[in-house]
């Protein structure tokens, strides 16, 4: 039984909540059980933001993550706060452009990607989170690239559909990054 427990955390405005939502949607399109739970505290206005996404072959119990198989972090405070959440054998993916230190955990796989820099080079820094998701998808196969694209179509309002090719390019940048 595969269950991906994904914790995405960073600043408000980095597109964390919507990236998580697209991921969950993609899982749903593959007939998996999914849940998406945002942090909705007062910190959401410009402060820190995080969301819990679960993609599972089994019915989902609690949507609240006390631990995660995957941690995607986009700022230093979130790494401090959530590094210990990751289960043994899990993974941490950081946006190296913004997270100033490397994860200390030795029992998990660590991927450090300068996502914001790569996204800026593409002309839109808000694609950073998609780049990081690309890495996650490439390693785990939690959802397919095709489902992700379909989810973008479902989630984004029609007027933003013209951006989908670029978003997919960002996803591929992540998927291909340092693919040794």
């Amino acid at each position: 039984m595969a269950q991906h427990e994904i914790l995405i955390a960073g600043f408000g405005g980095q597109g964390i909540l919507s990236a998580g939502r697209i991921l969950a949607y993609a899982g749903m399109l593959e007939n998996k059980n999914v849940s998406w739970l945002p942090s909705y505290g007062p910190e959401m206005r410009g402060g820190t933001a995080n969301c819990n996404v679960i993609i599972s072959d089994e019915p989902i119990g609690s949507p609240i993550l006390n631990s995660a198989t995957v941690l995607i972090v986009m700022n230093s405070p979130s790494l401090e706060k959530f590094e210990s959440y990751v289960t043994e054998g899990g993974m941490i993916i950081t946006d190296k452009s913004l997270v100033t230190r490397s994860p200390l955990r030795k029992d998990v796989d660590v991927y450090e990607i300068p996502a914001t820099q790569l996204a800026s080079e593409m002309g839109n820094p808000t694609y950073a989170c998609i780049i990081l998701l690309g890495k996650f998808i490439a390693i785990t196969g939690a959802v397919s690239k095709g489902s992700f694209e379909e989810a973008l179509r479902k989630v984004l309002p029609e007027k933003y559909h013209k951006l989908i090719p670029e978003e997919m390019k960002a996803l591929e940048v992540g998927m291909e990054y340092e693919k040794a």
Binding site: A24, L37, P63
Partner: peptide, 10 residues
């Protein structure tokens, strides 16, 4: 509760 109101599921 707030979780139920805020969470997304299918």
């Amino acid at each position: 509760d707030g979780i139920l109101g805020q969470m997304m599921e299918a």
